[in-house]
């Protein structure tokens, strides 16, 4: 027979806990994410730096035609998209950790984190739109500034 207001009893021999934990595993997943994304970013970022700064004339060769030539290929579109998302998540989460460590006042900590979350949204949305809506041969542009395949 059950009484409506009786406190719920734990099953016999259930693990003892002084208080119910209100924590989620968020920090654990964030710790794992930093390592998993880190491994991928080593390849993506060092590959990006090598192709853009070491091959050919390096930084001197960077212009619209160079970028258009890369993003005409889905390979570099996906490379850069993945790099954008992983780097922004990895970076924002890293800075979040640093803010949590050093900003001692609750309101300071809150607003600093809001600031980086805002930056995250703006940069990720903008970057994603640019990669997907990019036109390597914009109509009416000076042909001398465009990649050579635009004249075909």
């Amino acid at each position: 027979m059950s009484t409506p207001n009786a406190p719920a009893l734990d099953a016999p021999r259930s693990p003892y806990s002084r208080t119910k934990s209100t924590r989620s595993n968020y920090e654990l997943y964030s710790w794992v994410f930093m390592r998993m994304s880190g491994v991928v970013l080593v390849v993506l970022v060092l590959g990006h730096l090598f192709v853009n700064l070491m091959v050919g004339k390096g930084v001197a060769a960077l212009d619209f035609a160079f970028v258009a030539g890369k993003w005409a290929s889905p390979f570099w579109q996906i490379w850069d998209l993945l790099m954008l998302w992983l780097a922004m998540l990895h970076g924002t989460n890293g800075v979040r950790t640093i803010i949590n460590d050093y900003a001692e006042r609750d309101t300071t900590r809150f607003w600093l984190k809001m600031l980086i979350y805002f930056a995250f949204v703006v940069v990720v949305v903008l970057g994603t739109l640019v990669i997907f809506t990019f036109d390597p041969c914009p109509v009416g542009a000076d042909p001398s500034l465009l990649p050579s395949f635009c004249q075909a």
Binding site: F64, A65, V67, A68, L84, A87, M88, G91, T92, G94, V95, I98, A119, V123, L126, G127, L129, V130, T133, F134, P138, A141, D142, L145, L146
Partner: peptide, 24 residues
């Protein structure tokens, strides 16, 4: 180095976004 790279990353996405405006 992490904070430095993060700050550059924000600027770098913004400068690259100029490809969407015009080649010039």
């Amino acid at each position: 180095t992490g904070v430095l790279i993060f700050v550059f990353l924000l600027v770098h996405v913004l400068d690259t976004a100029m490809v969407r405006v015009s080649p010039e």
